[in-house]
Each structure stands twice: as C-alpha cells, then as structure tokens.
Design a protein around this nucleic acid. Structure first.
Length: 203
DNA sequence: ATATCGATTATCT
DNA sequence: GATAATCGATATG
C-alpha cells in the first residue's frame, strides 16, 4: 500500500485495511496473514491514544510520516503492532488486532511457542494483538519505525484483491478512557477476530 | 460459557 | 509507586 493510503483519518484507513495482507519477508522465509480486525487511535484528541499526552521518545513514530510501524511493549509481556497515519507532525495510528494466517503457519506456530507436530486451533496463532505480534516475531527493538509501504523493509502491507463484504464496529478493547467510541473494526462473521463472539454494529 | 488473577516491565506521575 | 491498546491458566456455572 502507498504512503498516501495512510495519509488519512485513521477511521477511514481502518476500514480500508481490513482484508489487506500483512507480510514479513526475511530471506526465503515468508509470513502472510489477512488483516481481519483493527482499532483506530485518533492522536492528540483521543484520550485512549498513546499520543494523547504529546510526543515522547516512546510514541514518536505516531507523530512522524504515515505508513510506519509503531511497536510498543505492554503488561511486561507483549508487543503490539500499529501503523502511523496522517501527515508528518500529526499523530494518529491503527492497532493491528487480529489476522488470518495465509502463509508460514509452521513458523508462526514455532514463534508462538507451540509444538508444530500437534494440531492447534489456528485462531490461537494470530487472534489478538499480542499473539499477532508474537507469531510474526515483531519486537520494538527490531521493527519500530519500519516503513510498512516498502517491501524492502521486510515488513509491509499488500493488497491481493480480496473484497470485504461487511464490516462490524464495536468499542475498543482494554481501554478505560473514551471507551464508548466505536473504533474497533472487523470483518463480519470472520472466525479469526479476537475475543468472545459478541454482536456488534453492522455498517 | 464467563470470571478472576498473576506475569512482568516501560513509561509516566 | 501505579498503570497499562494482553494472554494464559484456573475456577466456577
């Protein structure tokens, strides 16, 4: 996806990111998964966003040019992947919450610390922001700031022509501020979305 | 099926 | 010193 794709309101970009493919390429290794669930974070006007209190060393990528990876570490355990939106100088981003594995399932299984020889529910691989990051081997040290619009970065987003039928929105997960806003976007009736199955708002 | 809780550390007050 | 854009294990209906 182009730089301009991300140079828009995160709510707009969130809808258009659903159905696209997250790709990790390292040497001959290929990981790919279809994005099925994201959350929009609106920047300095959104109390739930990391960028709400202004620019810091941690969140600097969110204030930079669009289309770059913002990776943060949370709960002493997990990394989460975001992409920056809006022009350089304006904060905004999108959290990748869940995806459907398309390629590299064995490597994702290993990265998640599961045995490749036994059968697993494939949703355990990439359903949830911490799981998705772990399956792709994403860390802040390795990936924060990477250009997701360039295949040369080894981590990028691609369009394979997949068409999303319906999109569902719900409140965002795990936040306490601005908790009522419907800024979580997912593909309707998709088995790989995170969390318990709950009715949402069909749009 | 939902509820609760511990893990473990960067970041901010 | 408290909190956090989570997960997995355990307990209970």
């Amino acid at each position: 996806m182009s730089r301009e794709f991300y140079d828009r309101d995160p709510r707009r970009v969130s809808r258009d990111l659903l159905g696209k493919v997250l790709v990790r390429r390292a040497g001959s290794n290929l990981l790919a998964a279809r994005i099925v669930e994201v959350e929009a974070y609106l920047g300095e006007n959104d109390p739930a966003a990391h960028s709400f209190a202004g620019r810091t060393p941690r969140n600097a990528v969110l204030f930079g040019p669009p289309g770059h990876a913002y990776v943060y570490f949370i709960y002493g355990n997990h990394y989460c992947l975001n992409v920056s939106c809006l022009p350089d100088g304006v904060a905004g981003g999108i959290l990748f919450r869940a995806a459907e594995p398309l390629a590299g399932v064995d490597e994702m299984t290993r990265s998640r610390g599961l045995c490749v020889n036994s059968a697993h529910d494939p949703r355990k691989l990439t359903s949830g922001p911490g799981r998705l990051a772990e399956a792709f081997g994403i860390t802040r040290e390795r990936d924060n700031g990477k250009d997701l619009t360039s295949a040369r970065s080894g981590l990028f987003i691609a369009d394979d022509g997949f068409r999303v039928r319906r999109i569902v929105t719900t409140p965002r997960i795990g936040i306490t501020k601005a908790a009522q806003l419907l800024l979580r976007y997912m593909i309707a009736e998709n088995d790989f979305v995170s969390g318990p199955k709950k009715p949402g708002v069909v749009k």
